[in-house]
Design a binder for these strands. Structure first.
Length: 389
DNA sequence: GAACATTCATACGCGTGTGA
DNA sequence: TCACACGCGTATGAATGTTC
């Protein structure tokens, strides 16, 4: 059966479906499955098209995906995250197919392993004599440059993707939510949890006078080569929740330049430096090193939130298991880590303003922000440079 | 084999879309 | 609005490659 005949089949089948049902998210039909070559051939018209530049990453991706699906003869679905769409994994199950719109080499696939032996879930497949597996699926890579021009497409099978992924590491992502109502409620305040969880493992710092601790911090943090704040903790000189709050008081209401989309991490780094400074540390060059917690010497994890979703990354604040790291001779777990969450709002001229700050141990984190129960994971696959445009 | 450059691996982070 | 599941870019340290 040639490609035109398959398209006819698809269009006929689509006409049979109820209005808000889209064929592309339905179980595949052997007869209308395109070959890899056919997919590549049929989708060539997207080459040299320009994705509108005012779109966000997600919108760019969706724009390109919808174009592609139409080229394959399918109706444009009403959304790509609808109930029907979400049940379909890979996303375009009717073609055992998924699309990734890339401007970099880092291919990220969420919540399934595109090259695994795993049988694709679903009654239609599980009860089949020769069920489809993820590795049987086909993946279209759509490459665009920073201007949004689509430069190249490539199609790879799951089996081929397997060869690109040298580690198979699954990166977990925990998230929490800073509700709008709560943010409004605490605007311009510093909220401090009275529960000093760290005290259960280390207590010396609770008695030490602040002056003594501050003097030590100032004295010992002069060396810019190895910033004290990034060194293993010195328990006697931990600041208490309230002392941290006192130090950060002046940050509430401060404004930071909005450096534009894609530069948000720089703003985060600037803010992190301000916090380090405010705590009395004299050198603060090396920030955002991706380590946990961010400010190791004080066991402080810093979060800046511009939106209501808080990305917790791989560490769950309420996790009681000790953090596995060479510095951790005390059995510190995320429950004892002090989370400093700076809630940002849009200020004048698009700048960011520190609207409020919440200081809490990981243990009590969900008294302030609700943590999502399920985790998501992704695998990250480096696309070989020979495939890149 | 030191100094520098590039790539790899894995994390962080912002943001959107959807159903309830 | 809230909770959640994506979607993708990018920073960073480690590993590896390159040059003198």
């Amino acid at each position: 059966m040639n490609a035109e005949a398959k398209i006819s089949l698809i269009q006929e089948a689509e006409a049979q479906l109820s209005p808000q049902n889209f064929l592309i998210f339905c179980p595949p039909n052997q007869d209308s499955l395109f070959t890899e070559d056919e997919i590549l051939e049929l989708t060539t018209p997207i080459l040299n098209q320009v994705i509108p530049h005012d779109l966000s990453n997600v919108q760019k991706s969706q724009w390109a995906k919808l174009q592609t699906i139409e080229l394959l003869g399918y109706q444009r679905p009403s959304g790509l995250r609808t109930k029907q769409a979400k049940q379909s994994k890979p996303k375009f199950i009717h073609q055992l197919f998924d699309i990734f719109v890339q401007s970099s080499r880092n291919l990220q696939v969420w919540n399934y392993v595109p090259y695994s032996d795993t049988i694709i879930p679903g009654k239609w497949n599980v009860e089949s004599e020769s069920p489809y597996r993820y590795k049987d699926c086909r993946y279209l890579l759509v490459f665009h440059n920073p201007e949004g021009v689509i430069l190249k497409t490539a199609i790879v099978s799951g089996n081929k993707l397997a060869k690109w992924d040298t580690t198979g590491t699954q990166t977990i992502k925990w998230q929490a939510s800073a509700r709008r109502s709560y943010r409004n409620e605490i605007s311009s305040q510093i909220i401090v949890s009275p529960i000093e969880t760290l005290n259960s493992k280390i207590s010396a710092y609770m008695q030490h006078p602040l002056e003594e601790k501050s003097r030590f911090i100032v004295q010992e943090s002069q060396n810019p080569q190895s910033p004290l704040i990034k060194q293993p903790p010195t328990p006697a000189f931990f600041l208490t929740h309230n002392e941290i709050a006192q130090a950060l008081r002046t940050l509430v209401g401060t404004e930071f330049a909005n450096l534009g989309t894609g530069q948000e991490r720089s703003t985060g780094q600037t803010l992190e430096k301000e916090i380090i400074k405010a705590l009395g540390y004299q050198s603060y060059q090396q920030t955002d090193t991706g380590n946990y917690p961010d400010l190791l010497h004080q066991l402080i994890e810093v979060k800046f939130q511009f939106r209501d979703t808080i990305d917790l990354g791989k560490h769950l604040p309420t996790d009681p298991l000790p953090i596995k790291a060479p510095w951790n001779k005390w059995g510190i777990s995320p429950r004892e880590i002090r989370y400093v969450v700076a809630l940002m709002e849009q200020g004048v001229y698009n700048n960011f303003v520190v609207d409020s700050i919440v200081i809490t141990s990981g243990e009590k984190f969900n008294e302030y922000f609700s943590i999502s129960e399920g985790t998501n994971f992704k695998i990250q696959i480096p696309i070989p440079s020979s495939i890149m445009p």
